[in-house]
Simulated scan of single mutants.
Amino acid sequence: MRRPRPGAFPRGTGSRALTSVGAGADFVDAPADRTTEQEPVVTDGGRNVSRLWHITLSVSGRETPLSEVRRGLEQLAHDHPFLLTSRYANDHAEVRYWEEARDLHDAAAVALRLWGEHRSSAGLPPWEIVGLEVIDRQTYHLRVAEGYGPPPAAPVGVHPY
């Protein structure tokens, strides 16, 4: 039986976060083995070293057949195990996932490299990044609790808009 994670919403409350895509993991919200800002990883005399950040990466470009976009996003989900959900059309896509980083600057830097670094290996379209949102876990949960969070994700997989 799975134990609830600290800070996670109870199951069945309707306030569920995004669900996993692709690689078969069925976690909700942040990975259970990761540390939250309420429980920071601490080293070097009590200094916080890393936190979880919720990333929303938006990309767009020339039209690409939907089957190719989907196949690329599914491979990205397999290559990047903490990918939560992806939505796509033939000329744009949105990818959401959790990133562990020391601060917002580090999380944003990693997020900005994600698409380019996986373009060849995942067969992603040669689109450019047109949007990036990086928020901490607490802000993410506040938005979801207030009804302003991201729209609910489909249970599993990469989904069209």
Rank of each mutant, 00 (worst) to 15 (best):
I135E: 15
P81Q: 02
E63M: 04
H78V: 05
Q75W: 09
D103V: 07
L112F: 02
A154T: 15
V41T: 11
P6I: 05
F82P: 09
A108P: 05
V130C: 12
S58G: 14
R62A: 14
G123I: 06
E133P: 02
E39T: 15
A77D: 08
L114K: 03
G157I: 03
P10H: 03
P6C: 11
V69S: 00
E117L: 06
S120M: 13
P65A: 08
E74Y: 08
R87P: 01
E146A: 07
P160I: 05
G22I: 02
V49W: 13
Q38L: 13
D136N: 13
H159E: 10
D44E: 12
Y88S: 04
P10S: 04
A32N: 10
G61K: 02
V95E: 02
E39H: 14
A23W: 04
V134F: 05
A153S: 15
R11H: 10
V134R: 04
Q38C: 02
H118E: 04
R87K: 06
E146C: 01
P65I: 00
T13V: 07
Y161M: 04
Y140G: 00
R2L: 08
L83A: 14
D26W: 12
G116V: 01
P150C: 13
D29A: 08
L84C: 13
A122K: 04
A145C: 08
H141T: 02
L124I: 01
R2Y: 00
A30M: 13
H159G: 04
L104N: 02
T85R: 05
W98S: 11
L142Q: 09
V134Q: 01
G12E: 05
D79E: 13
S67L: 13
A17V: 00
E74P: 03
A23V: 03
V49T: 14
T35V: 14
E63F: 08
E94V: 00
Q38P: 07
T56K: 01
Y161D: 02
A108I: 08
A23C: 12
R16P: 10
R119T: 07
S60Q: 14
E99M: 02
A8Y: 02
T43G: 14
R5E: 00
R2S: 12
L112T: 10
E117H: 05
E133M: 10
R2K: 00
P126V: 00
Y148F: 09
L76Y: 04
V21Y: 01
P160T: 01
L142R: 13
G46H: 03
R47P: 05
Q138W: 07
R96G: 00
I55C: 04
A23M: 08
